[in-house]
């Protein structure tokens, strides 16, 4: 389990993957070391934002300092990411930041922008390494080729038979969002698919 801000919290708050993650190196790890690195990202603030007012969007983007991305893409930096989810709908993700929702709500009219907190509803796994795309290819029919799905692309797809959102953070770094209730099953499938390449769980 990932460390949470306060010691009090760590007793109380538990990720959907808390009971399934084993740390270390597994699978076909060669002398060159593992070619995949898998870890959970937790806790995160995951906020869904709906608005069809472009002016509001510009204002929020100024407030957050991140542009709202177009269809099938993401924007952001190491900390804050905004993912396109669907028409007039985005997902804002960042390491836990409780006041993000308050921050936006204070600045904007609640009839113009609609926020839904999904921080606990999704489990997030980061898949990194030179075979990361090979693992994604096993689970989904999206074209994961670098030329079609490069950095800052995102896809909402059926990954290993589960609804997943995949954010390409960098050429070989992917953040995968999955419904919390399926997290344990997803983890099992993911590491099974990764075993032939050798992986390390951090």
């Amino acid at each position: 389990m990932t460390e949470v801000n306060t010691s009090k919290n760590s007793l109380r708050r538990q990720s959907g993957l808390a009971h399934v993650i084993n740390y270390g190196q597994f699978g076909n790890v060669t002398l060159n070391g593992p070619s995949l690195f898998i870890c959970e990202r937790h806790p995160l603030t995951i906020l869904q934002l709906d608005t069809n007012k472009s002016k509001t969007l510009t204002d929020i983007s100024n407030l957050l300092n991140v542009e709202f991305p177009h269809t099938n893409t993401c924007n952001g930096d190491d900390k804050r990411r905004i993912l396109w989810l669907g028409p007039n709908r985005w997902l804002i993700v960042e390491p836990e930041h409780e006041c993000l929702q308050t921050l936006i709500n204070n600045e904007f009219n609640s009839s113009e922008v609609f926020l839904t907190d999904l921080s606990h509803g999704k489990s997030t796994v980061r898949l990194r390494g030179r075979n990361a795309r090979d693992v994604l290819m096993k689970g989904s029919g999206v074209d994961w080729h670098l030329n079609s799905f490069g950095a800052d692309y995102c896809a909402h797809t059926k990954l290993f038979d589960l609804a997943a959102t995949v954010d390409c953070r960098d050429i070989d770094v992917f953040d995968i969002y999955i419904a919390r209730g399926f997290a344990e099953d997803f983890w099992g499938t993911l590491v099974d698919a990764a075993a032939e390449f050798g992986y390390q769980v951090d």
Binding site: Q14, D161, L162, R180, G181, F182, D185, F186, G188, T189
Partner: peptide
């Protein structure tokens, strides 16, 4: 593929499952 045995169908667990 790997959709055999228990993996044939995904299992959904509540936060209190454990």
């Amino acid at each position: 593929g790997r959709d055999i045995g228990l993996s044939y169908k995904h299992t959904r667990r509540s936060a209190m499952h454990n």
